[in-house]
Design a protein around this nucleic acid. Structure first.
Lengths: 140, 140
DNA sequence: ATAATTGCAAATTTTTTGCAGGTTC
DNA sequence: GAACCTGCAAAAAATTTGCAATTAT
């Protein structure tokens, strides 16, 4: 369990029970879309409304507490803001894994941007494929 | 103008006027979301319905004629399927530019995947920042 | 000829909004 | 106590669907 109250305050947001529940749900799930967050959140706080989930996701993305991970063909997932990383997204089970972004990748992308005089702010690298678990399941 | 009729047939789809209009609109726009496609398409074929745009985007993505480009905070854009590339996405004007994916990038991502025994199928690399035009506009 | 596709309208799903009451700082 | 936040219900926006008429092969 982390100190979500402090995190919120650092970003100028009030530390409500609802927000902390949402953050802790996302933290436990790793990556989750609105529905998954809502379901999870209702387990511990059944009266928390879907509208509140929506409003807070918008607010917390704006304030940089959360990051949207848009995924082809699916609803966007959300994760806690953390160090830069890339995503391995399993097209079978939908799981999302974080992987460190090595310096080569960072430099290469920076070069591509520079060549076009593009002021790079953020990278979003999603690798789609089949995770090891699903590969084993398929093999059987 | 390309041979969209042939492209469609190669993918087992009938070459209707509607589909060819949609493809040629996307081709002209480069990258466009559903609304942008619909607007463009109506210029030359005002009776083409929005439902038809939706149905065909689904179908043509399934058949590999189109590719969805999901974008954080915006509606997905669609592009014609082409050689692998990355996207420079301007957060000011929303423009999307294609850039060749150099071999370093391809290899590096492949390595990351291999380390996790992840069977990589597709890469989606989006670089968010400010394009040169918008930088100049800002400077003034 | 037939199987696929279109356009319309309706249904569904997803997201946003207004506002009265409640909570945090 | 002031500003912010929540939950509800309603509204708006986005997407999907069913079906009769039409079209491509």
């Amino acid at each position: 369990m982390e100190n979500f109250a402090q995190l919120l305050k650092e970003h100028g947001l009030k530390a409500t029970f609802q927000r902390m529940t949402i953050l802790s749900s996302i933290h436990e799930l790793g990556h989750a879309n609105v529905d998954e967050i809502y379901e999870k959140v209702r387990l511990s706080h059944p009266t928390l409304s879907l509208a509140t989930v929506y409003k807070n996701i918008v607010t917390m993305v704006e304030e940089g507490v959360l990051v949207e991970v848009p995924i082809a063909g699916k609803k966007s997932k959300y994760e806690l803001k953390k160090n830069e990383h890339l995503h391995l997204i399993c097209v079978e089970c939908g799981s999302v894994m974080d992987k460190e972004l090595d310096s080569h990748l960072a430099e290469d992308t920076q070069k591509v941007a520079q060549r076009s005089s593009f002021a790079l702010k953020e990278r979003q690298m999603n690798l789609y494929g089949v995770c090891d678990k699903c590969q084993m399941a398929e093999a059987s």
